[in-house]
Design a protein around this nucleic acid. Structure first.
Length: 799
DNA sequence: AAGTAAATTTTTTTT
DNA sequence: AAATTTACTT
């Protein structure tokens, strides 16, 4: 049991708890993955549990892969007949459904197709058109979000529609689209990502036998990142552990960052309620970061109201200060990051570096800067291999061959490569499909069948093309059958799909560089297929499932010197050096979250996750100018910067920065103001607040008021979740405020104007009240918060 | 029917 | 600014 010696007492406690529910509340960097992996090894080695009977569930393939690797390494040398199943929620569901979905009797067969987000959007677009709506009035993306949200809360389209207020036309429309969407998926024998969970839960609910079967199979279940489970995932866990109750969940409420996917933090907070007799272990010793980094993280997260008090501590040294850089624009920010990486790696070549940003769109400038300095990097997320058009085309051929009801796959490839099937033919086909209420494939069969010759308005040329297309797909179907018993059931079919569809001919006859790159990509697909065949091959279907469920996130390479990724993707990872970039209001926290206190708290947890990724060095940067949709805008420093302990930060900006102002402003007045905003009577002695933190109702009220002047034309009323009435009122208030005409003489400081103040420096005018000599201005000074000034006395200058 | 030019939209975060 | 969709020419 030497593997136990490397654990602390609490960790050992978690590992040694065998039977019954166990909750491990594990702070950032407290060795949570270690506990899970050692626990699994312990179950096998000491308690003779068959690996086959163990299930560990994670959220990402990346996490699953990592865990699998570690466990395999620890179990090396033991002769085991089976391996524990380590899987994401989604692939677990696919595994169950591929076996038992027919029990559900909802018309689905085992050869169902998985629709990814892109496919779903296409279905929605089709449904919108079919119902006579316009995609301009109803954004498909918005519909998908509404549908997905509803599904993840465990609601179906009927429940959705029953909740429609008749005055709300848009919601009523979405309800109808929802229904049509479900019908289309059902007809196509297709499941979207959410359906994978829904159908599995429904199956387990419906069939006690199936439930018993999996309870029997999975005697010990572990769930990682439990704070990110949504109601469906919770239900799944509940059913799977119904009999044996051997459930171990690990998570940290402070790191719950998937609220937008309906993750419910209460799942972890109420674990003891959901699973009586649960034992709880708290892991609070951090092994990862320096004290300074932990202080910074704690200082930020302590601004959240809804959280379990947890005190993370470490034996690690204080370490370096945080390094702060304010850039002039996004390019100079990237340049700074690249040169710092260069310098750091010259002295510490072994240190892995991560650049973390809020949104994928930010990655570009960093890629360019790193390339310019010839620093090798690895980017996670963004554009996945399987998202490339040529890969998707070939995969679509394969999906269609496995399931000819897959309308989306069919419409993707019917004229790819071009074979002379144009708009007219496709429209005729669509009509036939609608009239007969069948799939495209059946429509093609009908159009081509001799019984109906002359019935349809298709040109002879089109008939020829359709026959060609049908021949190709039938050829592939035959090929799949032939190859299924051979040594190469996947790669031979993939090669056939590339060759027989005319795809490789198309790319080869076009001698552009792009075509060559695409051919190379297809070769990579073949390589992946060959690899798949070489491993214990589960056949073509699994290969395709894998393509659907893998996002490039799991392509994370721990050996890459520099990794670029979103903060979300970085969860669960750690790096000696971390750059947290783009700390600006509107980016981090994201503009979409700024108006909702709960979403803002999630952004703060996200910031907490970002900070706690760092082991030794943390760089934080922001830029004063940034392009949004190609237009240059000025950017305010992130409100989270205000929440950091400023005395732990070293400013390396050129010239005067937001931080230099913030640091010099430690007047009593500001401290009092900050304390009052937090609803405290006395400022904490340790506090270094200088500005406003937006976490009290008053502050939020002021925030709304101030924003009203800024983007006055924006319609932000639509499709908002039910919120606290107080917030609604504030919005209304902000709305009224907005309409008030601002009758100020020209040349004065109107809302939106950039001004300079002798003491506070640059600021933005948010509000203007009164007239004549009594004009009062509300001005936001980065680092000082908002100030009310009498225009006459303030001696403001235009900046 | 296919290729090109013009217009329009896009950005949260992920399986 | 880039990518996607639509409109227009051949």
């Amino acid at each position: 049991m030497e593997y136990l010696s490397s654990l602390n007492d609490k960790q050992v406690k978690a590992v040694k708890h065998i039977d019954g529910p166990l909750l491990v509340l594990a702070g950032a960097g407290s060795g949570k993955t270690r506990v899970i992996t050692v626990r699994i090894v312990h179950l096998i080695a000491e308690h003779d549990v068959l690996p086959h009977n163990i299930l560990a569930v994670t959220f990402t393939n990346k996490a699953a892969g990592e865990m699998r690797e570690r466990i395999t390494a620890m179990l090396i040398g033991r002769k085991l007949k089976s391996a524990p199943l380590i899987s994401t929620f989604h692939s677990l569901c696919v595994r169950i459904l591929r076996q038992d979905i027919e029990e559900l009797q909802e018309g689905y067969t085992r050869s169902f197709t998985i629709y990814d987000t892109d496919d779903s959007l296409k279905v929605i677009k089709g449904a919108i058109k079919d119902l006579g709506f316009d995609t301009k009035q109803i954004a498909p993306r918005q519909v998908l979000n509404a549908i997905s949200g509803s599904k993840n809360r465990g609601e179906d389209h009927e429940l959705f529609s029953s909740r429609v207020d008749y005055a709300d036309e848009k919601r009523a429309a979405i309800g109808r689209i929802f229904k049509a969407y479900e019908e289309r998926l059902n007809n196509a024998n297709a499941l979207d990502f959410d359906d994978l969970l829904i159908k599995t839960v429904r199956l387990l609910r419906k069939s006690p036998e199936t439930r018993a079967k999996y309870n029997d199979r999975f005697k010990y279940i572990l769930v990682d990142e439990y704070q990110d489970t949504n109601p469906l995932q919770f239900a799944l866990v509940k059913y799977l552990t119904e009999q044996q109750q051997n459930i171990c969940v690990v998570g940290d409420d402070a790191q719950s960052i998937y609220g937008f996917r309906m993750a419910d933090i209460r799942n972890i907070l109420d674990f003891e309620k959901h699973f009586p007799n649960a034992k709880t272990v708290m892991l609070e010793q951090n092994y990862r970061s320096t004290q300074t980094i932990l202080d910074a993280a704690d200082s930020v997260i302590s601004n959240n109201r809804g959280r379990k008090e947890k005190k993370l501590w470490t034996d690690n040294p204080d370490g370096d200060q945080l390094i702060y850089f304010q850039a002039f624009d996004a390019d100079s920010e990237a340049k700074f990051v690249a040169s710092q990486i260069y310098d750091h790696r010259r002295l510490n070549p072994k240190d892995k570096v991560a650049v973390l940003y809020r949104t994928n769109a930010q990655s570009r400038v960093f890629e360019e800067a790193l390339r310019r300095m010839r620093i090798g990097y690895n980017m996670v997320g963004g554009f996945s291999f399987y998202e490339r058009a040529e890969i998707r085309d070939i995969v679509a051929y394969l999906k269609l061959s496995l399931n000819t009801f897959d309308d989306i796959a069919l419409s993707r490839v019917i004229n790819t490569p071009a074979r002379g099937l144009g708009k007219a033919t496709l429209e005729e086909l669509e009509r036939v499909r609608k009239d007969l209420d069948c799939s495209y494939w059946e429509a093609i069969e009908t159009v081509l069948s001799e019984d109906f010759e002359g019935t349809f308005s298709v040109t002879p040329r089109a008939v020829k093309s359709l026959k060609l297309f049908r021949g190709i797909v039938n050829g592939l179907i035959a090929k799949i059958g032939e190859c299924s018993k051979t040594e190469r059931p996947v790669s031979d079919v993939v090669i056939a799909a590339i060759e027989q569809t005319g795809y490789s001919y198309m790319l080869k006859s076009d001698n552009s560089e792009e075509s060559e790159a695409r051919l190379a990509n297809l070769e990579e697909l073949v390589n992946a297929a060959v690899d798949y065949d070489r491993q214990e091959s589960d056949g073509l279907r699994d290969f395709i499932d894998h393509a659907a469920l893998s996002s490039d996130t799991d392509k994370f390479d721990r050996n890459a010197p520099v990794t670029l990724m979103t903060v979300h993707s970085a969860k669960g990872l750690e790096f000696p050096v971390v750059f947290l970039v783009g700390l600006e209001d509107g980016i981090f926290p994201h503009a979409r979250s700024i108006n909702d206190p709960l979403e803002l708290e999630e952004e703060r947890r996200l910031a907490y996750v970002a900070i706690t990724r760092a082991e030794k060095k943390l760089f934080i940067t922001h830029s004063t100018r940034r392009r949004v949709y190609g237009a240059e805008t000025t950017a305010e420093p992130s409100q989270f910067l205000n929440e950091l302990p400023l005395d732990l930060i070293k400013d390396v900006s050129r010239g005067n920065s937001w931080l230099s102002f913030a640091k010099s402003s430690t007047t009593l007045e500001n401290k009092r103001a900050a304390a009052a905003l937090r609803g405290e009577t006395h400022a904490k002695p340790k506090s270094t607040y200088t500005g406003k933190t937006y976490n009290s109702n008053e502050a939020i009220a002021e925030f709304f008021k101030s924003k009203s002047g800024k983007d006055s034309n924006e319609d932000r009323s639509k499709e908002s979740k039910p919120k606290k009435s107080g917030i609604e009122k504030l919005r209304e208030f902000a709305g009224k405020d907005r309409k008030e005409p601002v009758a100020a003489p020209a040349g004065r400081f109107l809302p939106g104007a950039h001004v300079r103040h002798a003491k506070y420096g640059k600021g933005l005018v948010l509000r203007r009240e009164g007239s004549g000599d009594n004009v009062k201005l509300t001005v936001s000074f980065p680092g000082f918060g908002q100030k009310k000034l009498i225009e006459k006395f303030a001696k403001l200058e235009t900046a």
